[in-house]
C-alpha cells in the first residue's frame, strides 16, 4: 500500500508517496537517488547503511521508510557545506587515512557524527563502542579511530567539532 509521508532530508523539507514495504535504504538509494549510503549485509551486521534519524544512528536496511514520517534524516550527502567544504569529521578521515576502499566510510562517519554531536569529548572507548556496528573489511580500524579521535575534544578544553544544525541551515565549523 502507498501513502504520503513528510520528513526533513539533509535539511530540506520533503513530501513524497512511499510503499509500506520500502526500507529507508531503498527510499534513499533507489527513490531519491542518493547512493552515498551503501548496502552491505542487509541484515544489520555491517553498518554500511548507517544514517542518522533524529540524532540517532540507525541501520537504514532494517528501518521502514514509513517510520521516517515527521522525522529528520541525515545521510552522508548532508555533511559537507553547499560550497563543497567538508565536515570536520570528513576532513579528518581524509587527513588521517581513515579511508581505504571507502565502502564503510559513509557509515563510519555518520556513526562518528552521532557520537560527537552527543558527546563532543568522546574517549577512545566511546569511539570504539560507537563504531562497533560498522565493519571495515580493509581492516583500517586504527586510522578510523585516529580520525575520529582527532576531532574529539577528549582531554582538551574545547571540542573541535561544532555540531551541525541542518534544520536551521547552519553548516561548517
Amino acid at each position: 500500500m502507498a501513502h504520503e509521508i513528510s520528513f526533513i532530508f539533509n535539511g530540506n523539507a520533503m513530501k513524497m508517496n512511499i510503499e509500506d514495504h520500502w526500507t529507508l535504504l531503498h527510499l534513499i538509494r533507489e527513490e531519491l537517488g542518493y547512493t552515498g549510503t551503501k548496502e552491505g549485509c542487509g541484515s544489520g551486521e555491517c553498518g554500511a547503511c548507517t544514517v542518522i534519524v533524529d540524532d540517532k544512528a540507525v541501520n537504514s536496511c532494517l528501518y521502514l521508510a514509513a517510520e521516517i514520517d515527521g522525522k529528520q534524516l541525515t545521510t552522508i550527502e548532508g555533511l559537507a557545506a553547499a560550497d563543497g567544504t567538508l565536515h570536520p569529521i570528513q576532513k579528518s578521515f581524509v587527513e588521517k587515512g581513515g579511508i581505504q576502499c571507502g565502502f564503510c566510510s559513509p557509515g563510519m562517519i555518520l556513526s562518528a557524527k552521532a557520537l560527537l554531536d552527543k558527546t563532543p569529548n568522546a574517549s577512545e572507548i566511546d569511539i570504539k563502542e560507537a563504531i562497533a556496528g560498522n565493519l571495515c573489511r580493509c581492516t583500517g580500524y586504527v586510522q578510523i579511530i585516529d580520525s575520529i579521535k582527532a576531532v574529539s575534544g577528549y582531554g582538551e578544553d574545547e571540542p573541535h567539532v561544532v555540531a551541525f544544525k541542518t534544520d536551521e541551515g547552519e553548516r561548517g565549523e
Binding site: G47, V58, N59, L62, N134
Partner: peptide
C-alpha cells in the same frame, strides 16, 4: 546487545 544502531531501534 547488538550495536548502537541496533540498540537505537
Amino acid at each position: 546487545i547488538g550495536s548502537v544502531q541496533i540498540r537505537n531501534v
